[in-house]
């Protein structure tokens, strides 16, 4: 069973350098951002996630809501495996698809085809699987001959079609997303939304961060309210 169980998760970002003292006062009085604390060695740290505990079960669609700096993206990165929590336990089961930075590993001098192979390899796919997925990905992008050209010749809209097509090509148990993905012009966008919807429907768990309450209410069954790195309220819809 896919699940995410977190218990007392804490994430502190250490602040190094001579400016850390004065920075402390600056951050302390701001409305946004995590809260400041001192760690054992008396260094100033920003507490990005403060004692978070939650259980996410199969079928859950979680929305993360909060100000800038409330810890939404940090939590997503912890779930994606980038940051290991400073303390607390995180127990995750199921394959994870991180849509946090789908352009990671792209190279503007390489061709579209090369970029598809590169992103797929980074996702851990073998060459056989990449070859199997390639025709479908290539067709979806509608880029045709352009796929043999270097990425730098693409318009920004065309550019985004490649990582989007790859990210949505592989199904996963747990999908992490920071703001809803949308790409392309009007007609392509429709097609893209259908494809993304299909992928999300097949996922067992979705964790979606957004500033838009309406978007979260439409797509999620539970909404986590984050403030200064703490989980202050959970709404069940």
């Amino acid at each position: 069973m896919a699940h995410i169980n977190a218990k007392n998760l804490i994430v502190d970002f250490p602040i190094y350098g001579p400016a850390s003292r004065s920075l402390k006062n600056a951050v302390l009085h701001s409305a946004t951002g995590g809260s400041l604390a001192k760690d054992a060695a008396n260094r100033v740290v920003v507490r990005a996630l403060n004692d978070l505990s939650f259980e996410i079960r199969e079928g859950d669609r979680i929305g993360l809501l909060g100000h800038n700096g409330s810890g939404k993206s940090t939590l997503l990165r912890v779930l994606a495996g980038g940051y290991e929590p400073v303390s607390g336990t995180l127990d995750m089961e199921g394959s994870v698809a991180s849509m946090l930075s789908i352009t990671l590993g792209m190279e503007s001098e390489a061709t579209g085809y090369e970029n598809i192979v590169m992103i797929c390899t980074l996702m851990g796919l073998g060459s056989g699987e990449i070859a199997r997925l390639m025709p479908e990905i290539a067709e979806f992008t509608e880029l045709g001959e352009y796929l043999s050209m270097p990425l730098r010749t693409y318009s920004s809209g065309m550019h985004m079609r490649i990582p989007f097509a790859v990210a949505t090509a592989v199904k996963a148990d747990i999908v992490l997303m920071d703001e809803w993905l949308s790409v392309g012009d009007e007609s392509f966008s429709k097609k893209a939304q259908a494809r993304l919807g299909e992928m999300l429907d097949s996922a067992k768990i979705l964790v979606l961060a957004s500033h838009s309450r309406a978007l979260l209410e439409k797509n999620c069954n539970r909404i986590f309210h984050l403030e200064h790195g703490s989980l202050i309220q959970v709404d069940t819809l």
Partner: peptide, 9 residues
């Protein structure tokens, strides 16, 4: 940096 912060590789 980009890879390390966003992936579990």
């Amino acid at each position: 940096e980009g890879h390390i912060k966003q992936t579990r590789l």
